[in-house]
Design a binder for these strands. Structure first.
Lengths: 207, 207
DNA sequence: TACTTTATGTAACGATCACTACAAAAAGGA
DNA sequence: TCCTTTTTGTAGTGATCGTTACATAAAGTA
């Protein structure tokens, strides 16, 4: 029962990418169905047949964001050999993502539902849950560093994770305001300057 | 020609405060005229007679925010005796504001127009301009500290200002996500830990 | 009291919102 | 060829958006 019936005339993946970029730039409520159908080049019934409803399309677009553009954070946290490098790579990766010219500035998860009418609270909560996951992922990486001996047992991992998550989320606002990539990078430098005081581990000496 | 005609039956200042709180919590597009008239307890024509249109009411509500709740930043920057105390007091004052229970969480200027449909770009730009003014005010305070000898002439004031503004704006997101005041305070502690490395001025020893 | 001025409540305006009923069109299967 | 299945475009649904026309009410002024 796979390929019966009239074939779809548009590329579902391309349509989803277009939806992601519109939601990314204008947010959930700032993007209308007619904005979406115009950008994709289809009519409303085709969109509804492929994606069910606006909210389902938005959630799918967020999931696409998290597995493509927005995947830098999780990748950096899991792959870098030390917690310090993991946090720094995560910040730098997002600075890159937020300020790349061919994309909407800032972070979709931070910006796409900062406004919310009461009717769309669930949309906001979905993104908020993802922001909390980021904080938790940073803290998990710090705890792992404690168990591996990189960080001492007295380091307040929740405090450190909250601080770097705040910088990360703040950078999303700055990028949306047009702050250039070089300035975001210098903010990462500044945030990493706090690392020794936060962890008791001095910065490595540059060669 | 002051008090001719039928007198107004509602308190314009109270109405403006109610509008500020609604816009603060739900944003510009997330707050409808009927939300406003319901909260104030008047009908649409009364609102339009008193405030002209939705956009004018929003701008007036933002101005009220900046001169009341949101005035902590400018006050701290101008009144504190040193740049370090000014920046720290600014962060702590906003942590207080953002996480006070009887108010919407987070910062109106950061959150009220993060989403924007193309029709409301001017609203977003108005708030963005205010965010930039905050960065500029921090940098001005740092430059003053340079001229007064608190900071050396080689301190990168733009970099330091951008960093602390990023923390400030990030804290608005965290507060909206329900992060408690104590956690925001610890993030301020962490941000101030970077001060010596950023300025070359060691932290004062606590008594 | 008559007149002017301003605010009020009712009741709508056209536009847009998310969403869909419906019939024609385009494919595979029998 | 006929039937089933799915997509398509047209044209709408009722609801809500920001905004306003209009008649009436309530005040000061003459």
């Amino acid at each position: 029962m796979a390929d019966r019936g009239r074939p779809r005339r548009f590329d579902r993946e391309r349509a989803l990418r277009a939806a992601m970029e519109l939601f990314w730039e204008h947010g959930y409520e700032g993007t209308s169905i007619s904005d979406l159908t115009r950008a994709i080049g289809i009519n409303a019934p085709s969109l509804y047949a492929a994606f069910e409803c606006k909210e389902a399309l938005f959630r799918e677009a967020v999931d696409l964001y998290l597995t493509t553009a927005g995947s830098a954070t999780d990748r950096a946290l899991s792959e870098a050999p030390t917690a310090r490098e993991a946090v720094e790579a995560s910040l730098r990766g997002n600075a890159e993502l937020y300020a790349t010219a061919d994309r909407p500035g800032g972070c979709m998860v931070v910006l796409a539902a900062a406004n919310y009418s009461t009717a769309n609270r669930e949309i906001r909560d979905y993104l908020m849950e993802n922001r909390r996951k980021t904080v938790a992922a940073i803290e998990d990486r710090l705890r792992r560093a404690q168990s591996e001996g990189e960080l001492g047992p007295d380091v307040d991992t929740a405090k450190v994770a909250a601080f770097y998550a705040t910088v990360l989320h703040g950078m999303a606002i700055e990028a949306r305001d047009g702050v250039p990539h070089a300035r975001l990078t210098s903010t990462v430098d500044a945030a990493m300057d706090a690392w020794p005081a936060l962890t008791g581990v001095p910065s490595p000496v540059l060669p």
